[in-house]
Design a protein around this nucleic acid. Structure first.
Lengths: 345, 345
DNA sequence: CTGAAAGCGCTTACAG
DNA sequence: CTGAAAGCGCTTACAG
């Protein structure tokens, strides 16, 4: 193996100064064609790879945008990443992806990455964040949250975000169930310990509002909270939660699951109990994940416009970086995609 | 926002030298308790975050292991990442995760990351690699492939790898189908253009071997290759491929899909054609992804021992780093998990 | 167009 | 236990 070869070696080999090598590599126009060629040939021949640490250390600006995302195994984020990447590309930024590990806090990682790569802006997806968040604000660069809504503190907007209105969309989904004639509607809800701003609680609130709107009395016996022992919003948790509800013996004709993964697990539990979907029990999911279309029956679900959300996020960040635009909170409409898992009764 | 505060600032604030600050931060025992405390307090108070670029540049050793993985949206990799992380932790390494983007080549990213973080070793998952691979070898640090088998070049082993024997396991799965009385077995195979060492081809080879073993004549009409226009090994592709096969009108009583995702999509196509699973058509998947258990019927599939594979990968790399152990090629047995999607005829 | 030099923010021998 | 100094590999004014 070749020893670590540096810019100095290339300079020596070519008989030029290191500054010239640096310029040639970085496509600086102030290098003669001949010199550039000679240098690039040497670079290739000796497999020279620039040291990014040295580069980042010296560079004052990097024009890169970072995407910090928590939950590498959350299928909901799938596909969004490449959209961010393309969007940043089009806006002329380099793109740096960073997966926040379970034991790390978003804020800490943000600070580190920020210094290390001299980021221009940050996109944050997922993760537990509290607001107002001084640590994030002290970053000194614009950031926008995607998929997370920031609670408003009085009237002042704390930072940019793009999301959907979880309460409203849940309400719409459950209203649809009501309109199909369902009166006994169960919900597979978030953990009881979840923050009131967490999506689980917001979706539960939407459920309650829909019932109220349709003159149906809220029945606590129809609320099944996710298990604390299983991963949140996971299939096993959906299965377990549905099973527990079934065991209580309450009767219901429809189920609203707060995520597609939960719905998926719940379907299994329903069938194991001998119930057909949608003949004996209707079910509705949330998120609009790609696989819901291929389920049998295909799942009626609240589809989040993830592509648009990702694009908008990049755009907002760009505005903040280039024009120092003030924070905005963009809320998209979701779409209730009606498929086969709900029947009229 | 506080301006970029450096180790120098902390040193000035505390009235000590920068070397002392560096030692205090890095838990060097050669710092008095009093000084350390003073420094750490200042660090906290001023939100000092070390610049990793500078750190990496100066450090001669880092004791970190990198995981390069391609296909961030491949659900098969889900869950493996945290196992790698824990394994590295236990072995005393820091862990650096790097998602290779679609347009990047694994080798290039490897070289960059290697220099940047002074890696001790590298784990590579997924991605298109060719062998022998000079670029990877010129890295100068040990690396091990996980989930990818390296073709042997004569008798010399080119690098360490841990994987399963795709041909053998496919053969086993299809043999099981034969033993259940199936004679007309279709396969949803990889793309025709795939490399002969790609998993798609290996699994097809296993299928053919099983048929032969059971005295069943290979019928090309029963082979449906994945579409080139849809993402490889995806649900839509499984759906489309199954649908195309159905349209040809060939008859079959069972389907072997080369991945669980393909099987998932195929199930949908089968049902749309009015076929019940497994009454009218049996189906078997490959990989053992988490959701197969919650499908209805639950999917019989070839389960890869991903947790063990990840652990072993870390162990092999550790051996290579610490003891300069020569490359080994570990091949695990997969398990044919028999569930509900296959019936005896 | 090119080179010599300063310096990015750290770590690490080397003295004391 | 602590400080002053060298230097990691680059980029970037500054001269020429």
């Amino acid at each position: 193996m070749a020893e670590n070869i540096t810019i100095k070696d290339i300079a020596r080999i070519c008989g030029v100064g290191i500054g010239t090598v640096s310029r040639a590599i970085n496509n600086d126009p102030r290098v003669s064609e001949k010199t550039r060629e000679k240098i690039l040939r040497a670079v290739k021949e000796h497999h020279y790879v620039p040291n990014n640490s040295a580069r980042n250390l010296k560079m004052t600006e990097s024009n890169t945008i970072g995407l910090l995302f928590s939950g590498i195994d959350n299928p909901f984020f799938q596909g969004m990443i490449s959209i961010f990447e393309n969007a940043c590309d089009k806006l002329g930024y380099a793109f740096f992806l960073y997966a926040v590990r379970e034991n790390d806090r978003v804020e800490n990682v943000a600070m580190e990455v920020c210094k290390e790569r001299r980021l221009k802006g940050l996109i944050i997806m997922g993760g537990q964040l509290s607001f107002p968040n001084r640590r994030l604000d002290s970053l000194g660069i614009p950031y926008v949250l995607c998929t997370v809504t920031v609670p408003r503190d009085g009237k002042e907007l704390l930072c940019s975000s793009v999301s959907i209105d979880d309460e409203k969309e849940s309400c719409r989904a459950v209203s649809y169930l009501c309109e199909q004639g369902h009166r006994r509607i169960a919900i597979l809800a978030g953990r009881t310990c979840e923050s009131p701003y967490g999506v689980g609680m917001l979706r539960l609130a939407g459920y309650r509002r829909a019932l109220e709107d349709h003159g149906i009395k809220f029945d606590p016996a129809l609320v099944a909270y996710m298990s604390e022992d299983l991963p949140e919003y996971s299939m096993p948790n959906g299965y377990d939660t549905m099973k527990r509800l079934l065991e209580t013996g309450v009767d219901f004709t429809a189920v609203f699951a707060v995520s597609d993964t939960m719905a998926f697990g719940a379907c299994r539990a329903l069938r194991e109990a001998g119930l057909r979907i949608p003949e004996d029990c209707s079910i509705i999911g949330y998120d609009g994940q790609y696989y819901t279309e291929y389920m049998t029956p295909s799942l009626t679900t609240v589809v989040q416009p993830v592509a648009e959300m990702a694009r908008k996020t990049a755009e907002l960040l760009d505005d903040a970086v280039k024009k120092k635009a003030p924070p905005v909170c963009v809320i998209y409409d979701a779409e209730l995609r009606i498929r086969e898992s709900v029947r009229k009764i």
